[in-house]
Every structure is written in structure tokens, then in C-alpha cells.
Computed example of a mutant assay.
Amino acid sequence: MALGQYLVNGLLQGGLYACIAVGFSLVWGVLNVVNMLHGAMVVLGAYFTLYGVQQLGLPLFAVMPVVCAIIFAAGYGIQRGLINRVIAQPILITLTLTFGLELIVNNLILHFFTATPRSLITDFGAFEFLGVRVPVVRIGGMLVAGMLTLLLYWLLYHSRVGRAIVAVRMDRHASALMGIRIPQIYALTFGIGAFMAAAAGCAVALIYPVTPMMSGLFLGKAFVICVLGGLGSVPGAIVGGMVLGLVEGVGTLVLGPQWATSMGFLLMMAVIILFPAGLAGKKGYE
């Protein structure tokens, strides 16, 4: 029964991981920007959710869309106002810029919310089946993350804006010749990445205590999942998230929780050697 419990926990965790990573993967794949700010956006989404529910007394499901919209607008503005000015520079320049922005956002979170761990007090009960116990709140968080990830997939492949994003990812110069406004697509893509980070943060606030120091953890998970699933691929983020969740779950059972993160990075190194394009990526553009 212990194995079943850890496998279920790993699958639920994997759905959340996919939501955390998909925006990071999309920005990296389309803009060729390693967005070091992504983890801080996840944490910011979690803290805004906590503030809206605990301090303002608003309903949870009214707070979440507002939080995602605010961080989407912030991401869009950051890309148009700052990152777009150096987008043509070597990747190290944009990496350094987003790293500096991450430090600023983390310090702002520490200033306004302090480093004390915070969490939502929720008691929605749990389901039990064949000795496996799953809290309802974890299922809810995973469903929110999973639905938004699938919605992003639909947006990319079944909408005009989404097809423009995919076209820019595949060939930026050909897309410009076809009349696609590249700076606008870049800003929109970065905003979508921020939106998905905020949505993941809302789900995290439902499940775990949150501290500002968690941003590096979330960023590391996003890196691993990008390598596992394939860069810029929504299905790849889902596959990579699920695989990482299961590996960490089984690793926790077999070796202990202190080895869970190491197992993920060991798996990442193996995939880099055996499948350079990722488990679900396509060579050349995914």
C-alpha cells in the first residue's frame, strides 16, 4: 500500500510540476530567454493568493483569476519594457537581466510578507481507496493546474494567436516576413508564461506552506522538466512533470525524502545523454 500511496502522490505532484514548467519552457523555446524570474513569479502568485483570501477575506476562486491576470500584465510589461530591449543580445545578457529581476522580486516579497512560512488553512477532507489516502485539496490543486495546462495547449494549436506563437518558435525570420509582429508575440508569450507561473503559485498555496525561499526550488524543477519533456512543448511539460513526480515519489519511498531532488537531477542527466531533444520533444524546434 505504501508504494501505491507514493505513486498517487507522485502523479498529483507531477500535474503541479507540469503547470510550473510549461510557462518557463514556452518562454525559453519561443524567446530563447532562460527566465530566471519564473520561480519568483510562482511564489508571488502564491503570496497574492494568500493575501487575497486571508487579509482581504475574498473567496478563493474569485482571487485566483485576479492574481493570474495581475501577474500576466506584469510579465507582459516586463518583457515589452525591459527584456525586449536586449532580446537580440546573447542569451547570457537576458539570463543576467532576469536573474537581477528575480533578486528584486524576492526582496520585495521578503519586505512585504516576511520570511515566515504561510499557508491556507483548508480542511476539505480526503478520499480513501484501497488504503491510499488523497486529500481533496491536493486533487483540487492538481485539477486546476492540469486544466490550465491543457487550456494552454488548446490555445497554442487551435487559435490564431497560438499558431503565431508556434510559428515564431519554429522560425522567427519567416514569421516576420509573413507579417507576424514579433515583439508583440514575444511580450504575449512572456505574459502567458507569467500567467502559468501565477496559476501554479495559486495551486501551491492550496497545498503547501509558502516561503520566499522556494523560488529557487521551483526554478530548478522547471529546468529539469524542460530537459525531460523537450523545450517549448506543452505535451513535453506534461510528460516531464509526471515523470519527475513519479521518480521523486518512488525515490522518497526507496531512498528517503532527502534524495528526491537528487533523483530528479540524475534522471535529467541521463535524458540529456540518451534523448537530447527530451522524451516528448522534436529535434530542431521542440
Results as ranks from 00 to 15, higher is better:
Met1Tyr: 12
Leu3Tyr: 12
Gln13Ala: 14
Leu16Asp: 08
Cys19Met: 15
Ala21Phe: 03
Val22Pro: 01
Trp28Cys: 05
Asn32Tyr: 11
Asn32Gln: 14
Met36Trp: 08
Gly39Val: 03
Met41Glu: 09
Gly45Gln: 02
Val53Ile: 09
Leu56Ser: 05
Pro59His: 06
Phe61Met: 13
Ala74Trp: 07
Arg80Phe: 05
Leu82Gly: 05
Val86Met: 06
Ala88His: 11
Gln89His: 07
Ile93Asn: 07
Gly100Ser: 06
Leu101Phe: 09
Leu103Pro: 01
Leu108Gln: 08
Thr114Gly: 00
Pro117Met: 04
Ile121Gly: 03
Leu130Arg: 08
Gly131Pro: 02
Val132Thr: 04
Ala145Thr: 04
Ala145Met: 03
Gly146Pro: 00
Met147Pro: 00
Leu148Cys: 11
Trp154Ser: 05
Tyr157Ser: 11
Tyr157Leu: 09
Val166Ser: 13
Val168Ile: 15
Asp171Ala: 14
Ser175His: 12
Leu177Gly: 14
Met178Thr: 15
Gln184Asn: 11
Met213Ile: 07
Ser215Lys: 09
Gly216Ser: 13
Leu217Ile: 14
Phe218Glu: 03
Ile225Met: 08
Val227Leu: 01
Gly230Tyr: 01
Pro235Phe: 08
Leu244Tyr: 02
Leu244Met: 14
Leu246Ala: 08
Glu248Trp: 03
Gly251Ala: 05
Val254Glu: 07
Ser262Ile: 14
Phe265Ala: 00
Pro276Trp: 02
Leu279Trp: 00
